[in-house]
Write a protein that binds this DNA or RNA. Structure first.
Length: 424
RNA sequence: GGAGAGAUGGCAGAGUGGUCGAUUGCACUGGUCUUGAAAACCAGCGCACCGAGAGGUGCCGGGGGUUCGAAUCCCUCUCUCUCCGCCA
C-alpha cells in the first residue's frame, strides 16, 4: 500500500500518477486523507485523556502510599468519568483506523513517469526485438503435437490424476524441464543471487504482504483446514522472508533466487490461450527478488531486465521487451517490463517474464525497512522478476528448434540435459 | 494425537499489582587512554504513532477482561520447546 506520509506530503503527485490508471484518483486519495485527519483529531483528544488518567493513577498510588485514603478515594471518583471517555475514544479510534486501512489498501501503486497511458495490453510499448523469427519447415507443428509425438508431455494423464492444466512431463520432457530449472538457477547464482528454497504454501499474512490478498483472492488455491494458500509465484514466500525486518544499509542490496512450482486457479480463462503449455494451473518458475536502497531501485530494475535478456540470448530464442502501459500494470507495480518469446508454430508471442519495481508499495505492507544514512528506519524498495517461467520457454524451444528429424536442444542447455536432440 | 513447560529489547536473562519501556550481561556505536590494537573507563544504544516544539500515547507472543493503575492477576487464541505415540 502507499505510504500515508507520502500521500499527505505529495498529494498532488500521487493523484496525478494514479490518474494514469484510469481510476478516480482524486476521490480515492482525498477520501483517505479525510479519514486520516479525522483519525488524528480523535487521537489527539484520546491521548490527552489518557495523559490525565495516567497522572491521576500516579497520584492515587502516591496517596495510598502516604496513607491518605480519603484523598485516594476522591481521586478515584474522578477517574470514573475519564475511564468512560477513554473507552469510547478507543472504540472510535479503532473504527476509524479500520476504515482508513480498508480505503488505503484499495489504492494501487503509483505508476512510474515512464509508464504509457493505455487501457489494455494492446497499448503496451514495445521497446526492443531481439533475434530473427525462425522459418520452420513444411508441416511444422505446434508444441502440443510435438509433445505428444515425442512423448514428452502427457496432458490427458494429468487430467486423470488432477485435472486440466496439470500436465505430466515424461522422459526427455521431464529431463528438459529439470535442465531448464538448473540452468536458470545457475544463471541467477552467477549474477549474484543467493539461492533459497522456500515453502510452497503460505499463510494469509504473507499473501497479504505481497499484495495477493485481498485483491487476487480467487486466483490462489486455498487449503480449507489450515487456511494456507498455494503460492502463485515464489515472489510471495521469498519476499516475505523480509517481512518485519529492518536491514542495515550495508546489507543492501539483498538478492535472492528461488525455484518453485507455481499454482494458479486462472479462473475465467478458457479457449485457445490455454492450449498445451500456454496457460497451466501448475507450472515451474525461477524467480529473482531484490531488496534495495530506494535511491537506486531503477538502476537495479535495468540490471534485472538485462539478466533476463541474457538468458534468452543464450537460449537463442527470439524475444521482445515491452513496457507495460497503465492499463496492464499490476496493482502493486510502479513499472513493469514484460518479456515475450516467439512461439514459431503458433505464430504468437508468449509472455515468459515480468520484471517489476514495486518501489515501497510492498515494503510498506511487509514492514520491510532499512536504516538510512541518518540511522532511521525507512521503507526499502522491492523488485522481482521471472527468470524464467518454464512452460512457455519449453513451448517455444519445442516449436522453434523442431526439424524434420527431431527437436534440437539449445547449445547452452546440452550440458544440463545430457542429450543434444529429441528424436522419435 | 497424548502429557508437560514456556513466549520479555539484536542475543542471553531478571522482573509476579504502582515512579517499569522495563535490572544486568553480551553485542553494537561514540569518546578517553594507546604508536596501533586489546583491555579498562565514560557515554549512547528499541519500534510505531501524534505534535512546529516541549512533550505525549501505545507496545513485554495476539485478542479480551479485572483494577484508579497490569510485563505482573483472570479468560482465550496462536506459536515454540521437552517427553510419549505415529512417520518420510
Amino acid at each position: 500500500m502507499l505510504d500515508l506520509p507520502y500521500l499527505r506530503e505529495k498529494k498532488e503527485d500521487a493523484i496525478k500518477a494514479l490518474s494514469k490508471r484510469g481510476i478516480d484518483a482524486n476521490a480515492l486519495v482525498e477520501g483517505v486523507l479525510s479519514i486520516d485527519s479525522e483519525r488524528r483529531t480523535l487521537l489527539a483528544d484520546l491521548e490527552s485523556s489518557k495523559y490525565e488518567m495516567n497522572q491521576a493513577s500516579k497520584e492515587i498510588g502516591a496517596a495510598f502510599q502516604s496513607g491518605n485514603k480519603e484523598k485516594a478515594q476522591e481521586l478515584k471518583e474522578r477517574t470514573k468519568v475519564l475511564k468512560e471517555i477513554i473507552k469510547k475514544g478507543d472504540g472510535a479510534l479503532s473504527e476509524v483506523e479500520g476504515r482508513l486501512h480498508d480505503q488505503l489498501v484499495l489504492i494501487p501503486n503509483t505508476p512510474h513517469s515512464s509508464v504509457p497511458v493505455g487501457n489494455s495490453e494492446a497499448e503496451n510499448e514495445e521497446l526492443k526485438r531481439v533475434g530473427d523469427l525462425p522459418k520452420l519447415h513444411e508441416g511444422a507443428k505446434p508444441h502440443w503435437e510435438l509433445a505428444s509425438e515425442y512423448k514428452l508431455i502427457d496432458f490427458e494423464l494429468g487430467v486423470k490424476i488432477t485435472g486440466a492444466g496439470f500436465p505430466v512431463y515424461k522422459n526427455k520432457g521431464a529431463r528438459l524441464q529439470r535442465a531448464l530449472i538448473n540452468f536458470f538457477l545457475d544463471e541467477a547464482r552467477h549474477a549474484g543471487y543467493e539461492e533459497v528454497m522456500p515453502p510452497h504454501l503460505v499463510n494469509a499474512e504473507s499473501a497479504f504482504a505481497t499484495g495477493q490478498l485481498p485483491d487476487k483472492d480467487g486466483q490462489m488455491y486455498h487449503t480449507e483446514l489450515d487456511h494456507l494458500y498455494l503460492i502463485p509465484t515464489a515472489e510471495v514466500p521469498v519476499t516475505n522472508i523480509y517481512r518485519d525486518v529492518i536491514l542495515e544499509e550495508s546489507e543492501l542490496p539483498q538478492k535472492l533466487t528461488a525455484y518453485t512450482p507455481c499454482f494458479r486457479r486462472e479462473a475465467g480463462s478458457y479457449g485457445k490461450d490455454v492450449r498445451g503449455l500456454n496457460r497451466l494451473h501448475q507450472f515451474d518458475k525461477v524467480e529473482v527478488v531484490q531488496v534495495v536502497d530506494p535511491k537506486n531501485s531503477y538502476d537495479v530494475l535495468d540490471e534485472m531486465v538485462a539478466h533476463v535478456a541474457s538468458i534468452l540470448d543464450k537460449l537463442e530464442l527470439p524475444y521482445r521487451i515491452l513496457r507495460l502501459c497503465s492499463g496492464d500494470l499490476s496493482f502493486t507495480s510502479a513499472l513493469t517490463f514484460d518479456f515475450e518469446v516467439y512461439s514459431a508454430a503458433q505464430e504468437r508471442w508468449l509472455e515468459v517474464s515480468s520484471v517489476s519495481n514495486f518501489e515501497s508499495y510492498q515494503a510498506n505492507r511487509l514492514k520491510l525497512r532499512y536504516r538510512n544514512e541518518h540511522g532511521k528506519p525507512a521503507l526499502a524498495h522491492t523488485l522481482n522478476g521471472s527468470a524464467l517461467a518454464l512452460p512457455r520457454i519449453l513451448a517455444s524451444i519445442l516449436e522453434n528448434y523442431q526439424t524434420e528429424t527431431g527437436i534440437e536442444i539449445p547449445k547452452c542447455l546440452i550440458p544440463y540435459t545430457g542429450f543434444e536432440k529429441i528424436e522419435a
